[in-house]
Simulated assay, not measured.
Amino acid sequence: MNARESITVDVVAVEQLTPLIKRFTLALPDGAPLPSFSGGAHVLVSMQDGEQWHHNAYSLLSSPHDTRQYRIAVRREEASRGGSAFMHDKVAVGTRLAIGTPANLFELARDAKRHVFIAGGIGITPFLAQLAEHQPEDLELELHYAYRSPEHGAFVDELNAGPHAQRTQCYVDSEGQRLDLLKLFKNLPADAHVYVCGPQGLNDAVYANAALLGWPKAQLHSEQFAATDVAGNGFTVVLAKSGIELEVGEDETILKAIERAGVTVESLCREGVCGTCEVPILEGEADHRDQYLDDDEKAAQKTILLCVSRSLTPRLVIDL
């Protein structure tokens, strides 16, 4: 199977973990094993809401050693573009969904023995599968999990009862517990690899503190669970190969506008980090909002990532 294939699954369990987070258990209708995956992987969930489709990527948080079921967790977003609201309001036991085969953009560094996880809120999800995949005697895994208040600490009980409990530290903001990133980096051995998943502010803070100590960027890894801002002024996008012209709404991504027109574009992450939806720009200028292109590539205005970036010009022509 490849990442483009679609798998039909049934929702076999729904759990309300916190006021904002639900966990969904997915299985094949015939009960057969699902495709294998490794810790840090995600699946793209496609949801049909009337005539509208939503496509959201969610980390797999179940054990890679048991593929009879997949588990994902969805946080209800206040500024939901449709996907999280659909999952919370319209998905129940018995609902049938389409998912893509697992893709992993957040794997553990090969040959490294010390791995330090930093999670903020729902950013805990990719680390759950990574913890389940490895026993403490196999790798040194250390988790730092920050969340707003006790009622929002999803998975805390499971983490405290798991094999990595002794290497797990929680920080509850409402109780005045703050993660001191600079202190953390100062105490890490030089060969450790650090992984962060959470809001953009947390990701930026990890990289900023690491830079203060000259930490090698090659030993830093990040995954952002939601794009920071994909909204802006509306514009026209032209698909040069087909001649299709589309209006991209103020709170709509180019990718979603293209999918609304029935055109399929591969995008594994949909968050501007993997580069699979990169296409050449033929006319116009992009408002780059991705984490994939470097500064020189963005300045060159040669390509654009359709999942998060917008247009600086009223009309944008792309090679698609």
Rank of each mutant, 00 (worst) to 15 (best):
M1H: 06
M1F: 06
M1W: 02
D10M: 04
V11H: 01
V11N: 00
V12C: 09
E15K: 13
Q16F: 02
P19S: 11
I21S: 04
R23H: 04
T25Y: 01
L26T: 04
A27T: 14
P29M: 13
P29D: 14
G39Q: 00
V43W: 12
S46W: 15
S46D: 14
N56D: 11
Y58C: 10
L60I: 06
H65W: 07
R68D: 04
A79T: 14
S80F: 10
H88S: 04
D89I: 03
D89T: 10
K90W: 14
V91H: 10
T95M: 14
N104L: 09
R110K: 15
R110T: 15
A112Q: 11
A119S: 13
A119C: 12
G121Q: 06
G121N: 04
I124F: 09
T125E: 02
T125M: 08
L131A: 12
L143Y: 06
Y147P: 02
A154R: 01
E158N: 05
A161D: 07
G176K: 01
D180N: 15
L188S: 14
C197G: 14
Q200L: 12
N203F: 02
N203E: 10
D204Y: 07
Y207G: 03
N209M: 12
L213Y: 15
W215V: 07
K217Q: 13
A218W: 01
H221I: 00
S222N: 09
Q224P: 00
N233D: 15
F235P: 01
G243E: 12
I244A: 13
I254H: 10
I254E: 12
E259W: 10
G262D: 02
G262A: 05
S267D: 04
C269F: 11
C274F: 10
G275Y: 05
C277V: 03
L282R: 03
E283Y: 07
A286Q: 02
R289S: 07
L293C: 00
E297C: 08
K298L: 05
K302Q: 15
L312R: 13
L312N: 06
V317A: 05
